[in-house]
Design a binder for these strands. Structure first.
Length: 930
RNA sequence: GCCCGGGUGGUGGAAUGGCAGACACGGCCGCCUUAAAAGCGGCUGCCUGACAAGGCGUGCGGGUUCGAGACCCGCCCCGGGCACCA
């Protein structure tokens, strides 16, 4: 192999590398991608896009892991980079920032293992990510980059926490208001006389109970293996931690909560205003789980049982009741002996109701979530010996406990209507309970009927449809004081505290009463102190009977603090929990807008410009937000919640953070295992004889994610070394639509390199480096191709269809390649259109074509409509659906003439048969029916 | 079980109800080369056929239409989400 044989000016990986480094340096030195703000430090009235229409495009920022990037990670980043480079050239003032979600478990766990401070690890990882991203030529405004771990950033995370802490949700107005207004309202006596009689401490407790961030002793998800509690969203359906897959137990613990449930309605309703993938909206709706129905009170000795039902219309069919095993009313209503009318099947074989209840409760408590749901539809339960009264007809109905009723949903009690509910039907069969249909089922229908139909066996509801009967029953319940219309949610309040080290400290201290006191803004940020031991106390993953202990609590000299919070110098105790990883990503889209502002979170003018609503009903928000679908519920729900609080309190003008969401697909890879099951390096496996071989060994192939242990990682750095960043970018964008997952195939990358080499060769003579381009006009036929490509590329770019845009650019390049002369008329627009995908190469060629500086703000080509009209149209002519001939006619040929010509063209195929029908589709084809 | 996506060549993928398979990978053939690589050119859905040509083709079965990969009905398979939420 001798270098003399490769033409010296060929676009090789080495040349690409040289060009890329040079342009990356140019962009950085010249601040090419700085986006001007309307006001403040980043304002720049002289900027070419100052005052232009804005476009705010954002990627879900990464957690900078120690492993660095693989080729799958930057797919979305390259997509948004290509899109924003295009939009910038098309005249928009583009904001495309990137930051790092740097708090979190891996850095902490690494710290525990090695003793390295998480800040050190995190900083190194962030630096590595920055270099990898820079190498890909991503056009970020680097002035706006930050890590969530920067004290100057988390100062504002803490500030938002204080906003949430210092507000309450006013159900009348349906929005958050400052807590001071609630206090004023109590003081003014607008909320009863209670206030005047309370002690100061009682008043504080009353107010604290209204805050949007509050402490509560409540059942939480305790994960001994991680040594921390987790939010519901972080627990998998089989009762394990999403991170680490450890068992999770229900424990009652005092923890910080955020009142996200107050926003349930708005979080559902405002989805309608968003341009999001329908599946993501659906997942959020399901997670919030709003059900409308009624609360109904069933009298029972010494009180009543309140149930929630979505089917108040079926009340006449309620033949028994079920309480969750843990329901607090159970003790007080269990009688000493089984009452008359107790069936044998109801007692579980126990001598007394108290024994039966105790036994069932013990059995239910011993089951894990996994076991309970694995039992599926087999219903268990036990009669508690008490009867309640159906409030609509006074019928005496037995009361059971059963684990198919969940303590945490609704009121933890149900009225059972086996006729119209499958679960109740199954239970009624096991326990020989009566079934009364109250909705007429279709003839021959078996089992519980949940469909539409007229009410039957329901006295004054008979004949009414389901919706009408529901409304009538709710009205009746309310008139007679037996119940009310009600809405419940599956969504629980957000458990916000974690017993970890590597997170934002709470800006909260406790005084001598043990009640929380907010630190004033002037004391922010509360910096994370250095500690010797970063680890929370972790336990045997299966030992539920353990207590969390936070790393910060061991730092005694930090926990005890002397402060003057208005009452003179006093000793306070700091909150030692930290915030969950989601906190930093809940609002970062706002900080990009005004990253260095130390007066406010974001200047209102800058927020209104980049994210404010443009038309009535417009939610505002980021114009395009690209990321993986795995954040459909967690991050996106929390971020929407915080944004709405900030909106209510007047800090932002947009009521949603992300107007348009796009879920990019994943790049996956094949992995290969030998017959012992060991993974072998994927890059060394070859395909032959219809199988896969590693050396002489036959190996089996599997498909999935890239991972170190699967030995199938390909990194962007390798791709840059072997092909150059531009080739890598073009390949990732050309391999398929952005939202589709697909397998990585290194050997296919060469196709993109060939494309760039051909384009390069159009401009540059490979042997001499001379510019080949001439001022010769383009021939008319190729000119039409050019303009058709321009029109198509613009359309594709606007729709994020980068793969087809690149295909059109290849077609144009291939059309120009065989031409005897290279015309500037075609090459200039080609280079400009390639710039979003292959920016370094395009910049270089742009310079060779005699231009100064960067093309980042050059006008993206516009097609000449006159060139989009075809010279002639070739009509395929179908006979009975098969193409049997073609005719070429001028574009404006009248239909009758086209028909004539077409019939003549297929005369042979018609062999004298008379056409029954001739359809001429203008500009498309002719269809003849015989 | 319920709810979403999705099934097109050897592969990744194109196709406002209008010539299925753009573009690319791979494969085959050729040019260049002492040779190889790179590059360039041609062919490449399947079947029959020397060619010309013909037949069959978008998971399966029906339907609507002059015309269906696309629309409707009923299935099958793959991926994802939810799963006793009253």
């Amino acid at each position: 192999m001798s270098e003399t044989e490769t033409p010296p000016f060929r676009y090789t990986a080495a040349l690409a590398g040289e060009i890329e480094l040079r342009w990356q340096a140019y962009w950085a030195e010249n601040g090419t991608f700085h986006a001007p703000n309307p006001v403040g430090e980043l304002a720049d009235p002289t900027h070419p896009r100052a005052g232009a229409p804005k476009l705010h495009v954002q990627d879900m920022f990464p957690y900078p892991s120690g492993a660095g990037l693989h080729v799958g990670h930057p797919l979305g980043y390259i997509g948004t980079d290509s899109y924003t480079r295009y939009k910038r050239m098309a005249g928009f003032n583009v904001l495309h920032p990137m930051g790092f979600d740097a708090f979190g478990l891996p850095a902490e766990q690494y710290a525990v293992q090695t003793g390295t401070h998480p800040a050190t690890t995190t900083e190194a990882n962030v630096e590595r990510y920055r270099q990898q991203l820079r190498r890909l030529g991503l056009a970020y405004d680097e002035r706006r980059s930050f890590s969530t771990t920067d004290p100057e950033y988390y100062r504002w995370t803490q500030w938002i926490f204080l906003q949430v802490f210092n507000s309450w949700f006013d159900p009348e107005q349906g929005k958050a208001r400052p807590i001071s207004e609630l206090i004023a309202s109590y003081e003014a006596g607008e909320r009863g006389t209670e206030w005047a009689e309370l002690t100061p401490v009682e008043r504080r407790k009353l107010i604290d109970a209204h805050r949007l961030a509050y402490m509560s002793e409540a059942p939480v998800n305790w994960c001994p293996g991680l040594g921390t509690v987790l939010a519901n969203e972080e627990v998998t359906p089989d009762g394990r931690s999403e991170r680490g897959n450890f068992p999770v137990f229900q424990r009652s613990l005092k923890q910080w909560m955020m009142r996200i449930t107050a926003y349930g309605d708005r979080l559902i309703d405002d989805l309608d205003a968003l341009d999001w993938p329908e599946p993501v909206k659906l997942m959020q709706r399901n997670w919030i789980g709003r059900s409308r129905g009624a609360h109904v009170d069933f009298p029972i000795d010494g009180g009543h049982i309140r149930v929630f039902t979505t089917r108040p219309d079926t009340l006449f069919g309620a033949t028994y009741m079920v309480l969750a095993p843990e329901h607090e009313l159970v003790e007080s209503v269990v009688p000493a002996a089984w009452p008359e009318g107790t069936k044998d099947a109801w007692t579980g074989g126990h001598a007394t109701p108290a024994e039966a209840v105790a036994a069932y409760r013990a059995a239910a408590a011993a089951k894990t979530e996994e076991e309970r749901t694995a039992d599926g539809k087999v219903k268990t339960g036990v009669f508690i010996g008490a009867f309640a009264e159906n409030p609509v007809n006074g019928v005496r109905i037995p009361v059971f406990i059963a684990d198919y009723v969940l303590a945490g949903y609704g009121t933890g009690a149900i009225m059972a209507v086996p006729g119209q509910d499958e679960r109740d039907w199954a239970f009624a069969e096991v326990f020989q309970l009566p079934i009364i249909r109250t909705v007429e089922a279709p003839d021959g229908f078996q089992g519980a009927y949940t469909g539409e139909g007229p009410a039957i066996n329901s006295d004054w509801l008979d004949g009414k449809g389901v919706a009408e009967a529901k409304a009538a029953m709710i009205a009746w319940l309310e008139e007679n004081g037996k119940g009310t219309g009600a809405t419940t949610y599956r969504l629980r309040d957000w458990l916000f505290s974690r017993q970890r080290y590597w997170g934002e400290p709470f800006p909260i201290v406790y005084d001598e009463t043990g009640l929380p006191v907010a630190l004033p803004e002037s004391m922010l940020p509360v910096e994370l102190p250095d500690v010797d031991d970063f680890s929370p106390r972790t336990f045997d993953p299966d030992d539920a009977d353990t207590e969390p202990e936070t790393p910060l609590s061991r730092k005694k000299d930090w926990v005890q603090v002397e402060l003057d919070l208005g009452d003179g110098l006093k000793t306070y105790t700091r909150e030692t929990n930290t915030m969950p990883q989601w906190a930093g990503s809940c609002w970062y889209e706002l900080r990009y807008l005004d990253p260095h502002n130390d007066k406010v979170l974001v200047d209102p003018e800058n927020e209104a410009y980049w994210m404010g609503p443009r038309t009535p009903g417009d939610p505002g928000g980021v114009d395009l937000y690209v990321g993986g679908v795995e954040h459909a519920v967690l991050h996106l729900l929390y971020a929407r919640f915080w944004h709405k609080v900030l909106y209510d309190l007047g800090h932002v003008s947009s009521f949603e953070p992300f107007k348009r969401l796009f879920n990019q697909g994943y790049i996956q890879a094949y992995a290969y295992q030998d017959d012992r099951g060991f993974y072998v390096p994927a890059e060394e496996v070859v395909e032959r004889e219809g199988g896969y071989f590693y050396g002489d060994q036959r190996v089996t192939r599997s498909y999935g994610k890239m991972g170190k242990s699967l030995k199938n990682i390909v990194t962007p750095d390798e791709m840059c070394d072997q092909y150059g960043a531009d080739t890598f970018r073009v390949y990732e964008m050309a391999m398929g639509p952005l939202d589709v997952s697909r397998p990585w195939e290194t050997r296919a990358v060469v196709g993109s390199q060939r494309f760039l080499q051909r384009a390069w060769r159009l401009v540059i003579e490979e042997e001499t480096g001379a510019v080949r381009v001439t001022d010769e006009p383009l021939d008319p036929k190729t000119r039409k191709v050019l303009h058709r490509v321009i029109a198509g590329v613009r359309e594709d770019m606007d729709e994020l269809r980068f793969n087809t845009a690149i295909a059109k650019l290849i077609e144009l390049t291939n059309a120009l390649t065989p031409l005897p002369v290279v015309s500037r008329e075609a090459v200039v627009p080609l280079v400009l259109m390639m710039a979003p995908f292959a920016p370094h190469l395009a910049e270089e060629l742009w310079g060779k074509l005699g231009n100064e500086g960067t093309l980042a703000y050059a006008d993206f080509p516009v097609a000449d409509p006159a060139q989009l009209v075809a010279d002639a149209i070739t009509y395929p002519v179908q006979v009975n659906g098969k193409v049997r001939g073609r005719v070429e006619v001028a574009p404006d040929t009248p239909e009758a003439e086209v028909r004539e010509a077409a019939l003549a063209a297929v005369a042979e195929a018609l062999v004298g048969r008379e056409p029954k029908k001739v359809i001429v589709v203008a500009g498309r084809l002719v269809s003849v029916v015989v």
